[in-house]
Amino acid sequence: MDTPNHCQFCAQHPDSAFHGLNREGLEEISQLKTCVSFKKGQVLMHEGARPQGVYCLHRGKVKLFTLGTEGKEQIIRFVTKGDLIGYRSILSDEPISASAEALEDTFACYIPKSSFFKVIEDNPKFSLNLLKLSCHELGEAGKMITSLAQKNVKERLAEILLILNTTFGVDEEGYIDINLTREEIANMVGTATESVIRLISELRKEGYIRSKGKRIALEDRSALRQMASVFE
């Protein structure tokens, strides 16, 4: 795996919150970060812990989820390359609010809290990037609350499929480029696995999607957008 020795030469640098950071800031982070690999299914951070640093994802896909009172998983969102994990917890000095688990073999850089705070203090542009990121995530959380409260399960499923398509893109055969179990999709939609299996079958028969094993491809995106009341 191509491990970036210096953040300046990292392929994810242009897409990350560190974009725009000055040379000294990148130098500071590069010297103190630890590059870590995680196997599929391995936990990066747990809800309730107080990590003393943040992960910047270099490669792989990670799901963020919380566990309900009966141990049922609610997937909040996915994290891909260039994204940060755990930064809100250390900024707010609160325990982390969601667990992070690798969906595939993942590679991430761990940046200690002290270096992270130093670059925030020294780089107004980086601080602004973090502020934008927080506001964006707040907005997305608001949309998710509205969706869970006001949309029916089929509409929510359509919305989630559109989000997955946008977040992960498609492979060479047009399938969404992430392998999620039906249970994981159900945990994102906020319903039972059986309901998701039935609704995916319905969407397939109605021509909105096609599927092959776990993989799903969107056939009629505009109709799905209409169904989910999502407008670009």
Binding site: V43, M45, G48, A49, R50, P51, Q52, P95, K113
Partner: peptide, 23 residues
């Protein structure tokens, strides 16, 4: 795989604060 590794680098860094929920 199921646990998460957390390194602490300086004295006084907080593992738990009084009142934190023990998840």
């Amino acid at each position: 795989l199921q646990s998460s590794f957390i390194p602490f680098y300086g004295a006084g860094e907080v593992l738990f604060k009084k009142g934190d929920q023990a998840l």
